[in-house]
Amino acid sequence: MNRKILITGTSRGIGKYLVEYYTNIGYVVFGCSRSKVNFDFKNYTHFCLDISDENAVKIMFKEIRKYHNHIDILINNAGIASLNHSLLTTIDTIKNIYSINVFGTFLLCREAAKLMQKNKFGRIVNFSTVAVPLKIEGEAIYASSKAAVNSLTQILAKELADFGITINAVGPTPIKTDLIKSVPAEKINKLINKQAIRRYGEYIDIVNVIDFFIQPESNFITGQIIYLGGV
């Protein structure tokens, strides 16, 4: 039976890549983003919503449950970043980043786990960042929102274990996506120089970790944060 996977933030970047990758290898893929998508893959269903909108998230899961019964895997890819000195950071920026990165991630975990618990099987993969362990200046809000994701991942791992659900996180290095397009090259290079392996990350580096987390044999792996690049 084809496994069913829900991926957030699929309109572009790594999310779009994940849709293409998992549909190509036979998964039934659901995705969501705030905007419509300009692509169409076999076995892909798209939902337009803001993942921090609880009601919209519940409606999406209601639709998935009604027509597809359950999901096996959730990949919480959706996230936003902001680079600014803390003295220049507005409360609106903070609310915006926390709404998507923390509240949205939590809502998706909660609703997905409700569906997964019936089958006593589930895999959840959250997105952290190397900005958490590297404690990079200018990323106080982004990194702290992802530190919250790490805590959620580790605590939900304990709460969901009895339901057969594992939850882990991947912490990417800088990748050439829209998320970092406004960050000066000098800043990115400084960050990359802090990695053991000094290069940009590639989409496939992230997929490799996700594939490890979601494979059936990883049923003893939960609450783990894997950082790329040797951070």
Binding site: K58, I59, K62, Q117, D162
Partner: peptide, 22 residues
């Protein structure tokens, strides 16, 4: 307590199916 969590999730879904309200 874990059984209660499962029961409440199942009940929420059954109510949603019956009455159409989350």
């Amino acid at each position: 307590s874990l059984g209660l969590v499962s029961f409440l999730v199942n009940l929420e879904q059954n109510i949603e199916d019956k009455y159409g309200i989350p």
